[in-house]
Write a protein that binds this DNA or RNA. Sequence first.
RNA 1: GGCCCGGUGGCAGAGUGGUUAUGCAGCGGUUUGCAAAACCGUGUACAUCGGUUCAAUUCCGGUCCGGGCCUCCA
Length: 452
Amino acid sequence: MELKLYNTLTRKKEVFKALDDSHVRVYACGPTVYDKIHIGNARPLVVFDVLVTMLRATYPKVTYVRNITDVDDKINARAAERGISINTLCDETIAQFRKDTNALLVNAPDKEPRATRHIAQMIAMIGQLIDKGFAYAAEGHVLFSVAKMGDYGKLSGRSLDEMIAGARVEVAPYKRDAADFVLWKPSEEGLPSWDSPWGAGRPGWHIECSAMAAEYLGKEFDIHAGGLDLIFPHHENEIAQSRCAHDTAHMARYWLHNGYVTVDGEKMSKSLGNFTTVAEALSAHRGEAIRLALLSSHYRAPFDFSEQLVKNTQIILDKLYRAAALNNAKELISEAEQLDAEFMAALSDDLNTPLALTRLQALASEANKGSREAALQLVSCAKHLNLLNDKNWFRSEDEDSLESKEIEAQIAARNAARAARDFAQADEIRDRLAARGIRLLDSPDGTSWEKS
RNA sequence: GGCCCGGUGGCAGAGUGGUUAUGCAGCGGUUUGCAAAACCGUGUACAUCGGUUCAAUUCCGGUCCGGGCCUCCA
C-alpha cells in the first residue's frame, strides 16, 4: 500500500518513495536531557513511533535513529543549579526518559546516539565546511556562512532578506552576516570542553544532528522528523550543514513535523510553565490512555491536552479492550495485506490516526455483535498503534494472585446466592466489590470482572 | 515589522463541490432478578461577508478571531 506523507519541504502530501527499498532510514530529533519530558515532548515520540511501525510493516529493513542531546547550556545551568555533575544529571534524566517512553509504549529506536560521543565526527564535518568555503573561524568560533549557500531557507520558506528584516537575529562582532550560525564555540571555564583545530570548546546546537545522521544513515536519507518548532532554525541549519558538507541536493527527502500540544489553545512549553510532565500525567492516567489520546488527533493539527480528554480516551480504550477480549481474540492477522483495508488506508494517508481509531471503534462494534473476524482485526490493527497489548488491562493483579482468587471466591458466593434467589445477599456482595472498584459483568457464559 | 497555520454540532474529531463520518456526553428503548457491559433509536454543525458554480462547509478573495515561527523549545 502506498504511504503518503506531508513533506514540509514541498508543503504537499507526497507518495513516499524510499531511496533504497531494501533499507529505509529515518532520523528524529530526540530530547535534550536536562529535565523530565512533558506531554508536548511526548507527541513526536509517539507519532513517529507509529510512522516507523508503518515503515517496518512495508520495508524489510528500517533504521530509526533518535539522538540524545547531552551537551547544552541548559544542562550546564541545571547541573550547577542542583549542585550535581553534568554526568549525573544526564544519566538521571535519561533513566527517567526511558521510564516515560516505556510507559507510553514507545518502541526504542535502532540507534540512540549521544552528542558527546560524536564530537570527532562533528569536528571532521566542520573541517569539511571550512575547506569548502562554507564556514569560517573567528575569535575561537566557527560560523556557517549562510550567504554561501544559494537556497538557504528553503525548508522554512524564508529568504535571508526576510530574516534580516525580522531584526531579531543575534548580532555578534565576529559574525560576517547576522544570520550566520555557530558550528563551534569556546567553552567557559569548568564546563565541558573538547580540543579542536579552532581551540578548546564545544559544538553548536545543530551540528550534532548533521554529524550523527551522516554517521548512521548516510549523506542522504529518507525521513527527518521533529516538532514544528524545529523547522527554523534547527532543521534549516542542519540542512545547510549537511548538504554543503556532502555536496548533496538533499539531507533527507521527506521532512515531517508534528503540531504542538496546547493547553487552552496555547503552546505547551517549558518557558510558559504551562506544561504537564509525562511523569505527572502517568500518576493520574495509564500510559496507554495517554498514548491513544496523543493519537486521537492528526499529528499535524494542534492537540489540546486536558485531564478530561485523557479520561475520555480511557473510556474508549476500555471499550476496545472489552471488544477485543470477545471470542478470546488472541491470534493475530499478521500479513499487512490481510489487515483491515480501511484502517490501513487511514494510516497510510499521512498517518491519519484519528480516522484509524474510528475504524477500530467500528471493528469493536462488529465484534460486540459477534464477529470473530472483527475481533481478530481489531487486535491485529491495534498492534500497528501498539495498543491493546495489555493482558491485564482490567486486572491490576495476575489471574492467580491472592486478590484475584479472593474476588473469584466472592463471585462464586454471589452466584450461589443468585441461584438461591437470595438477591439481597447477592447485591450486597456486588456492592462490596464495587466499593473496591471492581465491576462485575454478568453474561450467559458466567460472570467476569473488571477493576478500574 | 516579515512569514506560516487554523476556525466543523455540548465536547472530541475526520472528511467532502451535490449522497451532510465517527466517538464521548445527553435523551428514549432492548436486555438483565437488580446493576454493569452490550445492542437499537435519536442531533442537517461546518467563524463571517462577498465571488466562482446549476450546486460550497469543501474552491477564490476580504473581514474578524485564535495560535505559531523569526531567540532555547517537540
